[in-house]
């Protein structure tokens, strides 16, 4: 710079008009790149870069938000979503429906068996000696005890599993 011949010159004082003239020309007057065009291009580049920066920052911002923010909605994968997933699982639904069906079918079958046995027991009971009733052949089958003791033993026998009847018809 020191060997620059212009550097040794006295500074030339600019007139205000000259200064205005100089400030308005950032570009070479002979170039096709006019000041206006340069300003427009720069503005566009600035806007584009700002847009890209915003787009990048926006994307980055969404990422962090998803990472750290609690979203209580099911769609947002929030606290209720695993309940919903388990509550609407087709496999579990099918399993519960199946066991309900088994319960109902078995329940109906068991009820049929209850009524069947109820009726059968009534028929069997009708064949037995009614309380207090005496039959001559029954006495002999029991081992030959006389009737009054026999009657008592029957009752005791059916009440405690027949041990007394086994014993020979002694009232328990």
């Amino acid at each position: 710079m020191s060997d620059d011949p212009q550097g040794e010159r006295e500074p030339v004082r600019e007139t205000p008009a000259e200064a205005r003239e100089r400030q308005s020309h950032y570009t070479d007057p002979d170039s096709r790149l006019t000041d206006r065009l340069a300003v427009i291009i720069s503005a566009l580049v600035g806007l584009v870069v700002t847009g890209l920066a915003y787009w990048w920052a926006q994307g980055f911002a969404i990422f962090t938000e998803n990472l750290y923010r609690v979203q209580p909605t099911i769609e947002g994968g929030g606290v209720g979503s695993d309940w919903n997933a388990g509550n609407t699982d087709p496999m579990l639904d099918a399993m519960i429906a199946l066991i309900h069906a088994v319960d109902v079918i078995m329940g109906m079958a068991i009820l049929v068996f209850v009524f069947l046995h109820w009726a059968a027991f009534r028929r069997l009971a009708a064949r037995m000696r009614q309380p207090g009733e005496r039959r001559s052949d029954a006495v002999a089958a029991d081992g030959g005890r006389s009737s009054p003791a026999e009657s008592g033993a029957r009752q005791a026998g059916s009440d405690d599993g027949g041990t007394d009847a086994d014993n020979g018809g002694e009232p328990g």
Partner: peptide, 16 residues
């Protein structure tokens, strides 16, 4: 089976 030889308990009817 010989069930006719057994005497029915007096409480059986209402119990069943």
């Amino acid at each position: 089976t010989g069930i006719e030889d057994l005497e029915l308990s007096p409480t059986w009817n209402w119990a069943v």
